Amino acid sequence: KQVQVGDEKYTFDTPEEARKFAEKVAKEKNLKVTEKNGNFHVE
């Protein structure tokens, strides 16, 4: 599963790991997490 933050992409083995990372980054940057096709976008 992938997490996209701006132009950066991070790959994780499980959706749970990806979601945790996305939520942590979103909180730090005051952004929101959206899920698209099983991948997460922080925007």
Rank of each mutant, 00 (worst) to 15 (best):
K1P: 14
K1W: 15
K1R: 14
K1C: 15
K1Y: 15
Q2W: 15
Q2G: 08
Q2N: 10
Q2I: 15
V3F: 01
V3A: 02
V3M: 02
V3Q: 01
V3N: 01
Q4S: 11
Q4H: 15
Q4A: 08
V5P: 01
V5L: 08
V5D: 04
V5E: 03
V5N: 03
V5W: 11
G6N: 08
G6Y: 07
G6D: 07
G6I: 05
G6V: 05
D7G: 10
D7Q: 10
D7T: 11
D7K: 12
E8K: 14
E8T: 13
E8V: 13
K9M: 14
K9D: 06
K9Y: 14
K9C: 15
K9I: 15
K9L: 15
Y10N: 02
Y10D: 02
T11C: 15
T11H: 13
T11A: 08
F12M: 01
F12H: 02
F12C: 09
D13V: 05
D13R: 02
D13Q: 09
D13M: 07
T14G: 05
T14M: 03
T14E: 07
T14H: 03
T14Y: 03
T14D: 13
T14S: 12
P15Q: 13
P15I: 14
E16R: 01
E16A: 08
E17I: 03
A18H: 01
A18L: 02
R19E: 09
K20P: 00
K20S: 12
K20L: 11
F21N: 05
F21S: 05
F21Y: 07
A22N: 00
A22R: 02
E23A: 01
E23D: 10
K24V: 08
K24W: 07
K24T: 11
K24L: 11
V25Q: 06
V25H: 03
A26N: 03
A26R: 00
A26T: 02
A26K: 02
A26Q: 03
A26C: 08
A26Y: 00
K27V: 09
K27A: 13
K27F: 12
K27N: 11
K27Q: 12
K27P: 01
E28C: 13
E28G: 07
E28P: 01
E28T: 07
K29L: 14
K29W: 04
K29V: 05
K29A: 10
N30S: 09
N30H: 11
N30A: 08
L31F: 07
L31I: 06
L31D: 05
L31T: 08
L31K: 05
L31S: 09
L31A: 12
L31M: 15
K32Q: 12
K32A: 11
K32S: 12
V33N: 04
T34C: 11
T34H: 11
T34N: 09
T34Y: 14
T34F: 14
E35W: 03
E35M: 14
E35A: 07
E35I: 15
E35D: 07
K36D: 11
K36L: 13
K36S: 12
K36F: 11
N37R: 00
G38Y: 00
G38M: 02
G38K: 01
G38A: 01
N39W: 13
N39Q: 13
N39S: 12
N39L: 07
N39V: 15
N39P: 00
N39Y: 10
F40Q: 05
F40V: 06
F40A: 06
H41M: 10
H41N: 08
H41F: 15
H41Q: 12
H41R: 06
V42K: 03
V42H: 03
V42L: 10
V42E: 04
E43C: 12
E43M: 11
E43W: 08
E43S: 12
